[in-house]
C-alpha cells in the first residue's frame, strides 16, 4: 500500500495552483485534505503522476456572509462547518451533516471542496448543495464560473468541473424565515458512508410544507433530487403519496451493505422521519 512514484508541488495561491497544474499536465491532481485522494493513491487505483497541494492556501479557508449568501471557501474543513456559528444560523443542514461525515480525524483534514469535487454518490455535502440550491464557484485560467448544484453532479465521481478548473467556493442562499432544514442518514456504523441519506429543506406553513427540496444520497450514482415526491408534497398531498412517488424518483443499485430494494425502503423511512423533523412533530427515534 505505497503509492507509485509521483511528483509534488505546493501552491501558494489560486493562480499559482493553476499554473502548476498546467505545467504538470492533466494526469496531475489537486491535493486538498487528501482524505479520499491519498487512499486511492496508496491503493494504486488511479494513475496520477503529480500532486498540486492547495491545502495551505489560506484565502480558500473562509466562511463569509455576503448579502443574503453564505460563501464557503473550498478549503473549509468539515470540522469548520461543524463549529461555525454562521453555518449553524444560515445553513443548518451543513452543521447537521458535518458530524455525520467519517470521524473527527478525517473531518479535521477533509475539505468541502474536496468532497464536492470528488462527488462520492454516498457523500453528505453534495446532497446538501442540491437541497440548499447552492452555486459552485469554479476558477480556471479564464476566470470564475458559477455552476448551479443541480448541474454540477453529473455522475458517479463526476462533476461539471472542466480540466484545469479549481473549485474555489460554494455560495448558499441563507435560510429564510419560516424555512427549515433537516438531515438524516442510515449508516452501518457511526462515521460510515450512508446506505441511504436525505437532506431536506422546506417552508413550514400552516397549510403544510411548501417549496420542498429532498436531496437523497447513497441511493444513486450521484445525489438525487426527488422531484416527484417534492411535487406531491408541494401540492399538499399526503406523505404516503410522496413515498410512493419515490419509486419513480430513485433508481438505486445493490451494494455490499444494502440491496436496491432495501435502499428504496430506507428512502421512504427517511422521508417520514425527516418530514417529522422539519415540522417538529414526534420524530420516531433517531435514524
Amino acid at each position: 500500500m505505497k503509492p507509485a512514484p509521483l511528483s509534488y508541488a505546493r501552491a501558494s495561491d489560486v493562480g499559482h495552483a493553476l499554473a502548476l497544474w498546467r505545467e504538470a499536465g492533466p494526469d496531475a491532481r489537486i491535493l486538498a485534505g487528501g482524505q479520499s485522494l491519498l487512499a486511492g493513491l496508496n491503493l494504486r487505483l488511479a494513475e496520477v503522476d503529480g500532486l498540486i497541494d492547495i491545502s495551505r492556501i489560506a484565502s480558500l479557508r473562509t466562511i463569509d456572509l455576503v448579502g443574503d449568501t453564505l460563501r464557503i471557501g473550498a478549503l473549509t474543513r468539515h470540522a469548520d462547518l461543524e463549529r461555525s456559528d454562521l453555518v449553524a444560523l444560515h445553513a443548518p443542514a451543513l452543521a447537521q451533516a458535518a458530524p455525520l461525515i467519517a470521524h473527527p480525524a478525517i473531518r479535521t483534514r477533509g475539505t468541502i471542496g474536496g468532497s464536492l469535487a470528488y462527488a462520492d454518490p454516498a457523500a453528505e455535502l453534495p446532497a446538501c448543495m442540491l437541497a440548499l440550491d447552492a452555486v459552485i464557484v469554479a476558477q480556471g485560467d479564464g476566470g470564475e464560473r458559477r455552476i448551479a448544484a443541480r448541474d454540477f453532479f453529473t455522475g458517479v465521481f463526476e462533476t461539471g468541473l472542466e480540466p484545469f478548473e479549481l473549485l474555489i467556493a460554494v455560495e448558499i442562499p441563507v435560510l429564510r424565515p419560516g424555512r427549515a432544514q433537516a438531515v438524516r442518514e442510515l449508516a452501518r456504523r457511526s462515521g460510515d458512508y450512508a446506505m441511504a441519506g436525505l437532506v431536506a429543506a422546506a417552508d413550514v406553513t400552516p397549510a403544510g410544507l411548501r417549496d420542498v427540496r429532498l436531496a437523497y444520497f447513497g441511493v444513486g450514482g450521484s445525489p438525487v433530487l426527488a422531484r416527484a415526491a417534492m411535487a406531491a408534497l408541494d401540492a399538499g398531498r399526503p406523505v404516503a403519496e410522496a413515498e410512493a412517488a419515490l419509486d419513480d424518483d430513485l433508481d438505486p443499485s445493490d451494494d455490499l451493505q444494502a440491496s436496491a430494494a432495501m435502499k428504496r425502503h430506507l428512502a421512504k423511512v427517511l422521508l417520514r422521519r425527516v418530514l417529522a423533523d422539519l415540522t417538529g412533530t414526534e420524530q420516531g427515534r433517531p435514524a
Partner: peptide, 15 residues
Amino acid sequence: TPERILAALGTIPER
C-alpha cells in the same frame, strides 16, 4: 445486518 433483519421481517426480499 439490517438487511437480514428487514428480510426476516418480510419488509424486503432476502438476498
